[in-house]
C-alpha cells in the first residue's frame, strides 16, 4: 500500500505577519519556515505509523513550491518519508496547487492521499477536497483517527458537535487533524538518511488558476484593555452587561 502525503511550507507560528510591495505580498524577510503543523504532526506521522506497522509499503511526499521549500521537504524525509516530489511552482491558488498534486497522484497510483486539515497561513482547507474531486475519489475531511481493515479504511472525523465513524474502500483522500498521531522529533539517523533519499523536482503542468490575491490587510488594532480591580469583579459583570452588551 502506497501513501502520498501532501506537505506545505508555512511561516513559523510565532512569525511576525507583515506585508510588502503595497500590501500585495507577505513580507518573508527573516521569517522562519516550518512544515505546516497539520501536515507534519498528523498526516505525515500517521503515515509513518502505518508503515511501521507494515500496513503501508511506501510513503511519498509531494509539495508545490520553489527551491526554498527543499529544507522543509528534507525535514519531512528525516521524519520518515521515503521519497519526495517537488513541483517547481509558486502559487496561492488552491485549484492550481490541487491540480498539480492530482497529476502526481494519478501517475503514482496511491492507495491513500493524506493532507493536513488546512495550512496555517492561507487557511484554505481546500486542497484535499479538490484533489479528491480531480481524482474522482471519496474524501473524508477533518479526520481524527485512521485505521485499516483489509482494503477498507475506518476513519473517525469531526462533525458539528461531535464525531462520526465511517468506513470507506481504498483509495481515499483524507484531511488530517489533531488526534491522528502525536508530534515527533526527527532523530540523527533520520536526518543523516534524509540526505540520500530521492527528492525529485518536476516542472508544473499547464493548469488553470481560478483566484488571485489582490491585497492583504491587517486587522485594526485593539483599543486597549479596560482593567477592573480584583476587589470589584461585580464591575466587570456590569461592563459586560451594560457596555459590551454581551451577557
Amino acid at each position: 500500500m502506497k501513501i502520498l502525503v501532501c506537505i506545505s511550507k508555512t511561516p513559523d507560528t510565532t512569525a511576525k505577519i507583515a506585508f510588502a510591495d503595497n500590501n500585495t505580498k507577505f513580507a518573508a524577510d527573516g521569517v522562519q519556515w516550518i512544515i505546516n503543523p497539520y501536515d507534519e504532526w498528523y498526516a505525515l506521522v500517521r503515515a509513518i505509523e502505518l508503515k511501521e506497522a507494515d500496513a503501508a509499503t511506501a510513503i511519498h511526499l509531494v509539495t508545490v513550491g520553489l527551491a526554498d521549500t527543499d529544507p522543509i521537504i528534507r525535514k519531512a524525509l528525516a521524519l520518515g518519508g521515503d521519497e519526495a516530489i517537488r513541483i517547481n511552482a509558486d502559487s496561492h491558488d488552491s485549484y492550481y496547487i490541487a491540480s498539480q498534486i492530482a497529476s502526481i497522484a494519478k501517475e503514482g497510483n496511491y492507495d491513500l492521499v493524506f493532507t493536513g486539515k488546512e495550512t496555517i497561513d492561507y487557511n484554505g482547507s481546500s486542497i484535499g477536497g479538490m484533489v479528491a474531486e480531480l481524482l474522482d475519489l471519496p474524501y473524508v475531511s477533518l479526520a481524527t483517527k485512521f485505521t485499516l481493515e483489509g482494503t477498507n479504511a475506518i476513519i473517525i472525523r469531526e462533525i458539528e458537535g461531535g464525531e462520526e465513524t465511517c468506513k470507506v474502500q481504498l483509495p481515499v483522500v483524507v484531511s488530517c487533524q489533531k488526534g491522528m498521531a502525536e508530534q515527533r522529533i526527527p532523530n540523527m539517523k533520520g536526518i543523516m538518511g534524509a540526505r540520500s533519499k530521492p527528492l525529485k523536482v518536476v516542472e508544473p503542468a499547464a493548469m488553470d488558476t481560478f483566484t488571485s490575491i489582490a491585497s492583504f490587510d491587517l486587522p485594526p488594532a485593539k483599543a486597549g484593555v479596560k482593567l477592573v480591580s480584583a476587589d470589584n469583579p461585580e464591575e466587570l459583570v456590569r461592563l459586560l452587561h451594560e457596555e459590551a452588551k454581551v451577557i
Binding site: S94, Y95, A98, I127, G129, M130, D208
Partner: peptide, 24 residues
C-alpha cells in the same frame, strides 16, 4: 458556511463547476 460540511463539499464543487472558491 465555512463549517465542517462546507469544508468537505465546497472544494469538490469548485473543481466540478470550474468555479473559483474563497473559503473563510
Amino acid at each position: 458556511s465555512n463549517n465542517f460540511n462546507g469544508k468537505a463539499i465546497a472544494p469538490r464543487l469548485s473543481v466540478r463547476l470550474k468555479a473559483g472558491l474563497v473559503s473563510g
